[in-house]
Design a binder for these strands. Sequence first.
RNA 1: GCUGGGGUAGUGAAGCGGUCAAACACAACAGACUGUAAAUCUGUCCUCUUUCGAGUUCGCAGGUUCGAAUCCUGCCCCCAGUA
Length: 401
Amino acid sequence: MNAALTFQIHHRLDGALARTGSIITPHGTIATPAFIPVGTKATLKSLTPEQLANVGAQAVLANAYHLYLRPGADILDEAGGLNAFMNWDKPTFSDSGGFQVMSLGVGFKKVIDMNGMGSDKPLGKKEKLAWIDNEGVTFKSHLDGSKHRFTPEISMQIQHQIGADITFAFDELTTLHHSYEYQVESLNERTHPWAVRSLTEHQRLNAERSHRPPQALFGVVQGANYEDLRRQSARFLAGLDFDGYGLGGALTKENIGEIVGWMSQELPEDKPRHMLGISEPDDIFACIENGADTFDCVSPARVGRNGALYTLDGRVNITNAKYRRDFSTFDSNCDCYTCKNYTCAYLHHLFKADELLSNTLATIHNERFIVRLVDDIRASISDGTFFDFKQIYLTRYYAKK
RNA sequence: GCUGGGGUAGUGAAGCGGUCAAACACAACAGACUGUAAAUCUGUCCUCUUUCGAGUUCGCAGGUUCGAAUCCUGCCCCCAGUA
């Protein structure tokens, strides 16, 4: 009913679930498939919005948990919303804080592992900061230890104050280390009821806050790597009036495409599907082939800040000694600002000297690399060359590893 | 010249008779990072060995001791104060 979001499909790929399309939001249109960089705290670390736009980003994704703690969602509301606050005029997404329920709770780091190593050892050495129940989550701020509580309703209230074009339902992100029984319980007792509650509150807020552009809400599918649970979760959410869907949670890398395919088959054709937290080239190809439309991920930015840069031949660490006297540009195949203007030796030096510009230049390159990859995939769907492109690209990318 | 302090691995710096190949920090080298508790984290870092382990070290040369980076003697350097 509301005009929060329109999704149009332009091309479909024969023999696969891949499609190209347009997501039309109050702040503009996103050509899909698309990679959406993450600006957790209303900034993509080390980049100005202009630099972010120049990298080709069509939208940015912020996080309700972080903005709630600082500066406070009310401040974003007063500022006129996320776009105005951060001086970004293109579409925006906000995550619900659901990820933090996991990362602050059952564990840190290891639980995101997609290889299902089967390790169920203590998940991180840090103190547990979040406790989940069927109503919501109580957590301690990682900033000052103060106690807070998120429920689906509160998350939606925060996300409406943040004012992103696309919001996500408050969910529980489980891990591959959780048992099947736990996955079932999580779905039935929390993620699904919370989706209903998120939607109800969201609709109420959209009506109440009619002075602001209508916001869209994506339901989040969970179910780890179990086919029955993924299909059941997708089917359940498909029955609700969401504007689109987030495909989240514990995905095994080896069959990530298959898992996405299960969900795509159950979800409505005409709603966009967003992959939460995915950005490795092989994963991106697999997900798009199986029906994913958009992606967000911190990895290109974080990995870049730590000195790892993408190339068509795989990821390399620019901090390696072999770059010390390498006065060639980093990647002659890349059209980003960094690669057009700086040498390997200079980038190497910036990292070694711990200079702030290293973060900026590396982030520009990595974000451009992944954004462009998805842009190229989109083009390959339109002209029907997707499978050739995928084969050639991935063969080269993983040749050395 | 005298008086006092000091010379420890790439650097700084602990150790002051045995559990010391020698804490710690930095540098160096390599790796990791998938809805950001990340400008973070992990490993290596005298030599040889894949591991186990073996072999040489604590300014230099002697000595005491079952045993020395640690004690003694001489020498060589450095720093501070003073002639």
